[in-house]
Amino acid sequence: MKSKYFGVLVLIMVLYYTTNAVWAGNIGIKGSTTVLPIAQKVAEAYMKEHPDVKITISGGGSGNGIKALIDGTTDIADSSRFIKDKEVKQAVENGRYPVPFAVAHDCIVPVVHPSNTIDDITMEQLKDIYMGKVENWKDIGGPDRPVVVISRDTSSGTYEVWHTKVLREERVFPGALLQASNGAVVQAVSNNKNAIGYIGLGYLEENVKDLTVNRVRGSEETTLNGTFPISRPLYMFTSGWPEGDALNFINYVIHPQKGQKYVSEIGFVPLY
């Protein structure tokens, strides 16, 4: 009898370890460069807690991430936009059913020098400014100073939001100063009383003044209730309802005290 129990025990242990070895595979994450810092930061913390799990992360843009999901070459696709109908169709044809998880929100606020008397700006005015049509602040009710337009490099995710939400796919005029990071924009705006720039909500500091857009102030609250116009949710897509490590990871990302803590640390708006 005893040996029989022992045999079962051994079997269970063998099963446990082998399946564990199978599950303790890799999670592949690919997609949007905007979501990339979130994925990286959370994955680092997750791997510290689960040393047996290996997560590989690459960028490449939302479209590439979703394409990889459709082809089955990634477990999780990061995306800064919702999946398109065409992509869903392709995925279903390949026998995959994309499942979206909102993991954070992105909120971009326009900022000016604290000495600027303007407090509110409309989306149309923002668009005109970034297309180079407004050359002096007095044209939109501000002081008599030239407008210095500060934008982000065209490959950044923040620029992408601005490009779709504010510029509505029009081009930023060539005279705009392009800065490489949110921090550089803050630095440039705080040093120039003529400047206007835009940054992620998490980078807002005392030495720049944020403008209300259409009389709505950018904040976590207005982002989550959808009234602030320059914001968007960020997603992770899985193929079918996730299982095993992928499920654990997604749960970790949207956990209020775990993943979401890092989301706000790196300047995004957390889900709750």
Partner: peptide
Amino acid sequence: GMVVVAPFLQDIFGAATGL
């Protein structure tokens, strides 16, 4: 250049931007 010269150029020469 960023924190010393740029504001100086803006204030003295009236350049729209010091960068």
